[in-house]
Amino acid sequence: MQRVNMIMAESPGLITICLLGYLLSAECTVFLDHENANKILNRPKRYNSGKLEEFVQGNLERECMEEKCSFEEAREVFENTERTTEFWKQYVDGDQCESNPCLNGGSCKDDINSYECWCPFGFEGKNCELDVTCNIKNGRCEQFCKNSADNKVVCSCTEGYRLAENQKSCEPAVPFPCGRVSVSQTSKLTRAETVFPDVDYVNSTEAETILDNITQSTQSFNDFTRVVGGEDAKPGQFPWQVVLNGKVDAFCGGSIVNEKWIVTAAHCVETGVKITVVAGEHNIEETEHTEQKRNVIRIIPHHNYNAAINKYNHDIALLELDEPLVLNSYVTPICIADKEYTNIFLKFGSGYVSGWGRVFHKGRSALVLQYLRVPLVDRATCLRSTKFTIYNNMFCAGFHEGGRDSCQGDSGGPHVTEVEGTSFLTGIISWGEECAMKGKYGIYTKVSRYVNWIKEKTKLT
């Protein structure tokens, strides 16, 4: 034993070699072989497995989906700052455009905790909710729209109204504003409101030439003092309507412009014939205590009207009353817009006519005020429907199939267009061939041609 100890002390290297040989010859039971080890760690190889990531292109799944990435790591994937920024906006807080917040056709661009709407022409605001041009839906104005110097929408209202708090709607500024039905039992019968379409306001006024200088022999019209197929109006439903009495009662109609003036057809009036105007009328054979009678003290036909040349060209006249009318729910003026808007309103496509005229061709006159909704007829169809001249200051309205029309005794009465609950004068009943005849239409004086003249002559002093 002493000898062994001496050998170990003198030859430590020998001992180490012996131990190493023993270990190498022993069977290893701690580690699995290569094949079995792979069965336990069965993990798919990654895209760049075996390579240094710093030297390969980034992978979106590896960089940002398996674990949260930084902007720089995302930049490695896209290799483009702009594309990385677009991805980053949604990656950080989701897609803010998912709810489609942009209105009126706006395009949404996502941002971090926010979004941006790219608005089409005519709109602005956070969600493109603000109209900035009158060309689109009248700028959301209830009545009139004008573009300011910086191309912003400025709404306005006709006389007797003021802008509401929203700067879009119009509200009454006087007790009985024009064009409004205020009798409670008839307010439910107000005709369907007309909503502004998209309009090209630059070209809204037709490029028409008034044929002022045409000389033409007097034409022989049949029954051209021209509501057939209409309905009984309720008291106060058309408070701007008046009836004219002269040699015979209810020979023509008219509309209240203001307390002192009536507008009617020029062919209705004769110099030297006494005319009485009755406002607030409903049943011409009954006294309903809503009527107001006034005498006409002055007749002003349009300066281009000449019955000797043509009885229905420039067929418009103004009547001055001896005493002002007292405005109330049964006696209310009709609204008159400017030339541009009167023309736009007419193009809405349908209007209402009213009167006490004959209820059928050569038949009896109506006792109760009649009204009828009539569609506008395109000019080409209008011209083809008659052998008589249709001037540019006239328009056609009615039904091709016949059966409904204005008729004798309705002449001078109103053709009105309702705009968001307020009625505007767009025409004056003038003439036609018979009444409600198939293929024939009622012919009306186009008020847009005469609004400046009306307003100039009827100013209240």
Rank of each mutant, 00 (worst) to 15 (best):
M6Q: 08
M6N: 10
M6K: 13
I7T: 09
M8F: 14
S11Q: 07
S11M: 15
P12M: 15
G13H: 07
L14M: 07
L14E: 01
L20E: 00
Y22F: 15
L24Y: 06
E27C: 04
E27F: 02
T29H: 10
F31R: 14
D33P: 04
D33I: 07
D33G: 12
H34T: 14
H34C: 05
H34R: 12
E35G: 15
E35S: 12
I40F: 15
I40M: 15
L41Q: 15
L41C: 04
L41V: 14
K45Q: 12
Y47H: 15
S49V: 13
E53Q: 06
E53I: 05
E54L: 04
E54S: 11
E54H: 09
V56Y: 08
L60H: 09
L60C: 04
E66Q: 08
E67C: 04
F71E: 15
E72L: 14
E72D: 15
R75P: 08
R75D: 15
E76D: 08
E76H: 15
E76K: 15
V77P: 15
F78Q: 15
E79H: 15
N80V: 07
N80C: 04
T81N: 08
T85N: 08
T85P: 14
E86T: 14
F87E: 13
F87M: 13
Q90D: 15
Y91L: 10
D93Q: 15
D93W: 05
D95I: 09
D95Y: 13
D95E: 10
Q96V: 09
Q96H: 15
C97H: 02
P101Y: 04
P101M: 04
C102V: 01
L103N: 11
L103C: 10
N104Y: 05
G105A: 13
G105Y: 07
G106Q: 02
S107C: 05
C108Q: 01
D111K: 14
I112D: 14
I112Q: 15
Y115S: 04
E116Y: 11
E116K: 15
C117V: 01
P120A: 12
P120K: 06
G122F: 03
F123E: 03
K126C: 05
D131E: 11
D131I: 06
N135V: 13
N138D: 08
E142W: 04
E142V: 05
Q143K: 00
F144D: 00
F144P: 00
C145L: 01
K146A: 11
N147Q: 13
A149L: 09
D150L: 10
N151T: 10
K152D: 13
V153Q: 15
C155V: 01
S156M: 10
S156H: 08
S156P: 00
C157A: 01
E159L: 07
G160I: 00
Y161T: 00
R162F: 10
A164L: 06
S169K: 08
S169L: 05
C170P: 00
P172E: 05
A173Q: 14
A173I: 12
A173V: 12
V174Q: 08
V174Y: 05
P175H: 08
P175V: 07
R180L: 05
Q185N: 14
T186V: 09
T186H: 10
S187W: 10
S187R: 09
R191C: 05
E193T: 08
V195Y: 11
V195T: 07
P197H: 08
D198S: 09
D198A: 12
V199G: 11
V199T: 12
N203Y: 08
A207R: 05
E208T: 13
T209R: 11
I210G: 12
I210C: 10
I210H: 09
L211E: 07
L211S: 12
L211W: 13
L211N: 09
D212H: 10
D212F: 11
I214K: 12
T215V: 08
T215W: 05
S217M: 12
T218W: 09
T218A: 08
S220E: 09
F221M: 09
F221L: 13
N222F: 12
N222G: 13
N222Q: 09
N222P: 08
D223F: 10
D223P: 11
F224R: 09
F224Y: 11
R226M: 10
V228Q: 12
V228M: 06
G230Y: 12
G230W: 13
E231M: 11
E231L: 07
E231C: 09
D232S: 11
D232I: 11
A233C: 04
G236M: 05
Q237P: 06
Q241V: 09
L244T: 02
G246K: 00
K247H: 09
K247C: 03
K247W: 06
V248D: 02
D249V: 02
C252K: 00
G254L: 01
I256C: 01
I256E: 00
V257W: 01
V257Q: 01
K260S: 01
K260G: 03
W261Q: 00
V263G: 01
A266E: 00
C268W: 00
V269K: 02
E270H: 06
T271I: 09
T271R: 03
G272H: 03
G272M: 03
K274P: 02
V277K: 00
E281R: 10
I284F: 13
E285Y: 06
E286N: 09
E288Q: 06
R294K: 03
V296S: 00
V296C: 02
R298F: 02
R298S: 08
I299E: 03
I300E: 04
P301F: 13
P301R: 08
N304S: 13
N304D: 11
Y305I: 02
N306G: 03
A308M: 09
I309F: 11
K311R: 11
Y312I: 09
Y312Q: 06
Y312G: 04
H314K: 02
H314A: 07
H314R: 02
L319N: 00
E320I: 01
E320Y: 03
E320K: 03
L321I: 07
E323S: 09
E323C: 04
P324L: 03
V326W: 06
L327T: 05
N328M: 01
V331I: 09
T332R: 13
I334H: 00
C335I: 00
A337W: 01
D338G: 11
E340P: 13
T342G: 06
N343S: 14
N343P: 02
K347P: 01
G349M: 05
G349P: 04
G349T: 04
S350F: 11
S350W: 13
Y352D: 04
S354V: 14
G355A: 10
W356F: 07
R358G: 14
R358S: 14
V359A: 14
V359E: 06
H361C: 05
K362V: 06
G363D: 08
L367F: 13
L367W: 14
V368S: 06
L369G: 06
L369E: 06
L372F: 13
L372A: 13
R373Q: 15
R373T: 13
V374N: 02
P375F: 06
V377I: 12
D378Y: 03
R379N: 04
A380E: 13
A380Y: 12
T381Q: 14
T381H: 12
C382L: 03
R384K: 11
S385N: 14
S385I: 13
T386N: 13
K387L: 06
F388T: 14
T389S: 07
I390C: 05
Y391P: 13
Y391E: 14
N393G: 13
F395R: 02
F399G: 09
E401V: 06
E401K: 14
E401A: 13
G402E: 15
G403R: 05
R404G: 15
S406C: 09
Q408V: 09
Q408R: 11
G409D: 06
G409H: 14
G409R: 09
D410G: 06
S411T: 15
H415W: 03
H415E: 00
V416T: 09
E418V: 08
E418P: 11
V419A: 05
F424N: 01
T426Y: 01
T426F: 00
I428G: 01
S430N: 10
E433C: 09
M437W: 13
K438P: 13
G439T: 10
G439D: 07
K440W: 03
K440C: 09
G442I: 10
I443N: 00
I443T: 08
I443A: 05
Y444G: 03
T445M: 14
T445H: 06
T445V: 08
K446P: 03
V447F: 01
V447I: 12
S448K: 02
R449P: 15
Y450K: 02
Y450P: 02
N452Q: 11
W453A: 01
W453L: 00
I454M: 07
K457L: 09
K459A: 09
